[in-house]
Every structure is written in structure tokens, then in C-alpha cells.
């Protein structure tokens, strides 16, 4: 029982990070039907920017809170700029190209970003400076840390903010309209270019925050960390039903919990044949399983063939 509760907590923390990253995928996909493969790399750059800025400021004797805040802000600004640039340079010219073309571009951009990061930050692991003294709490035999609490509450706040943006602002309405039908939306006076750019920028900002959280959680970062994280987050988005905001959140949290439980129990379940290093396969097995029975994801709309 203790393991169970503990794994649920761990899964929730990991899952809220997945959810934040998944939102970036799902927003872009919902609006323009594109898998922005480079999103994971944007998150990675967010982490590394934060490390550099926070590390630099703290070395200069700036108080941790100020350094942390500035670091997050810097990561958000840099990632938003990259998101905007990606859309403008790589995807916008391809809006009417064959379907696979933007996908290859996305892959190309992902390679570019990864290698730029490697040139800037090097091949080695970077340590995330510790900002707060992390304390451990214990409830019913399961322990959790200040950092974990912060991760879950910050992501909850960010998601609430996103929901407000999408359902309570003019930009949000334009986004929803574009997702429904870009042609009609543009006839109604929606500036499609701006809406799409906004989706990239907002998604990247969320990704940057997620990046800082990953960094502070695992305390290390690396130029290759974006691929697997991006892959998992995308899986989460598909699991929930890609294009669906609530689905991305649910998919992320669910994936985090499934992974944590899977890692905790796989040894017992297979009598030691498979160990916890199989953690990564759960994401994909669950994904395949869910899509077999719900081809549009857990919360995706059913899309029948239209004749």
C-alpha cells in the first residue's frame, strides 16, 4: 500500500510535467493538424537557458528567489521566441504542402535545435542549481518533497491559466474557431496567421516552464533530454485525444501514474522476469491498447469517414 501511494505521488508529479508539454503539442495539432516534433527540443532549451541564467546569477550573489524567477522568465522568453521563429520560418511556408512535408521539416528542426544546444551547452550533463532547500514530508508512509509540491501546483496554475485564455479571451475564441474551421474563421475576420503563431508561442511558454520543472526535479539536464520527454508528452496528448486541451492534461497525468505504477510493480507482476528498466514501454503499450479500443484517444471526438 505504501508503494502504491508513493508511486501515485511520483506519477502525479511526472504526469503534470507531461501534461504541460503535451499541451504544446495538442494546441498546435488542434489548430493546424501538425505534429510539431521540435517541441521536445524547445522544452530542453528552456531547461538549459534556466540553468545558465540561474547559475550565473547565483554565482554573482543574487538571492535564490530572484535568480530563480529571472531564470524562469528568461527560459519562457527564449522559448517563446523559438516557437515563434519555428512557425514563421519552418511551418508557415508549408501550410499547403503535402502532408508529410511539414513532418520532415519538424524532424529537421528538431535535429537543428538539438545540435545548436550541443554547440552552446556542450555534450556533458548540466546540474540544475538548487534554489530552495527541499524538505521531505511524510503522509501515510509515502513521502514527497517541496519541489514535488511546487511542480504540481505550478502546473495546475498554468493549466488553469491556459483554460482561461482559451475560453475567456478573444484570442482563445479565435483559436477555437480556427481549430473548428480555418476557412470560416478567416471569413469571420480571424487572423489565422496570428492565431497559429499564438498557439506556438503559448505552447512554447508552457514548455519552458515544464523544462524548468524537469530540471529542478531531476537536477540534471542534457541536450538530448528533449526527445524522450517530447515523445512521452506527445503520447500523452494522443492518449487523451490529440487536439483536446482537457485530454492532454488527463493523458499526461494518466501516463505519469501508469508509468510510475508500472515501474513499481512490473517486477512482482512478471516474477522478476522484467525489471523497472522497462518503465518506458508502458507509455507505448498503454497507448496502443487505448487506441485499439478508442481510435481517437480517451477524450477525442469520434471522426467517422465522411462520404
Amino acid at each position: 500500500m505504501e508503494t502504491f501511494l508513493q508511486q501515485i505521488i511520483n506519477g502525479l508529479v511526472q504526469g503534470s510535467i507531461y501534461a504541460l508539454v503535451a499541451l504544446g503539442y495538442t494546441m498546435v495539432y488542434g489548430i493546424m493538424g501538425l505534429i510539431n516534433f521540435a517541441h521536445g527540443e524547445v522544452v530542453m532549451i528552456g531547461t538549459l537557458v534556466a540553468i545558465t541564467v540561474i547559475g550565473g546569477l547565483m554565482a554573482a550573489g543574487v538571492p535564490a528567489v530572484v535568480a530563480g524567477g529571472t531564470g524562469v522568465l528568461a527560459a519562457v522568453v527564449v522559448c517563446m521566441a523559438i516557437g515563434w521563429w519555428l512557425e514563421r520560418v519552418a511551418y508557415r511556408p508549408l501550410r499547403h504542402a503535402p502532408r508529410l512535408t511539414p513532418l520532415i521539416t519538424a524532424i529537421g528542426m528538431s535535429i537543428v535545435l538539438q545540435n545548436v544546444a550541443m554547440i552552446v551547452w556542450g555534450r556533458n550533463y548540466r546540474t540544475f542549481p538548487s534554489l530552495i532547500r527541499s524538505e521531505s514530508f511524510e503522509v501515510a508512509g509515502a513521502s514527497f518533497t517541496t519541489v514535488q509540491v511546487m511542480i504540481v501546483s505550478v502546473s495546475t496554475l498554468m493549466m488553469a491559466g491556459l483554460l482561461l485564455l482559451i475560453y475567456r479571451t478573444k484570442l482563445g475564441m479565435a483559436m477555437r474557431a480556427t481549430a473548428q474551421n480555418p476557412q470560416v474563421a478567416s471569413l469571420m475576420g480571424v487572423n489565422i496567421d496570428r492565431v497559429i503563431a499564438a498557439a506556438f508561442v503559448v505552447g512554447s511558454a508552457l514548455g519552458a516552464v515544464a523544462g524548468v520543472m524537469v530540471g529542478s526535479y531531476y537536477e540534471i539536464a542534457h541536450y538530448q533530454m528533449g526527445s524522450m520527454l517530447g515523445l512521452k508528452a506527445f503520447t500523452a496528448a494522443v492518449l487523451g485525444g490529440i487536439g483536446n486541451i482537457a485530454g492532454a492534461v488527463a493523458g499526461g497525468v494518466l501516463l505519469g501514474i501508469i508509468e510510475a505504477l508500472g515501474a513499481g510493480y512490473i517486477g512482482d507482476l512478471t516474477h522478476g522476469f522484467l525489471g523497472s528498466h522497462y518503465q518506458d514501454i508502458f507509455a507505448f503499450i498503454v497507448l496502443i491498447g487505448v487506441l485499439m479500443f478508442r481510435p481517437s484517444g480517451l477524450f477525442g471526438e469520434k471522426t467517422g469517414d465522411r462520404a
Partner: peptide, 23 residues
């Protein structure tokens, strides 16, 4: 099990399968 999925869903499932094999 997967070929009835729409294009992008099929893409991610095949990708996941590749990773499963590698793991």
C-alpha cells in the same frame, strides 16, 4: 490492431512500437 487508425495516430503507434522493440 492499429491499421484502422488515422494517419497521425498510426505514426505515433508505430513510433512507440519501434521504441518497445529497442527497449
Amino acid at each position: 490492431p492499429t491499421l484502422k487508425l488515422r494517419g497521425d495516430y498510426l505514426a505515433i503507434v508505430t513510433l512507440g512500437f519501434g521504441e518497445i522493440i529497442r527497449i
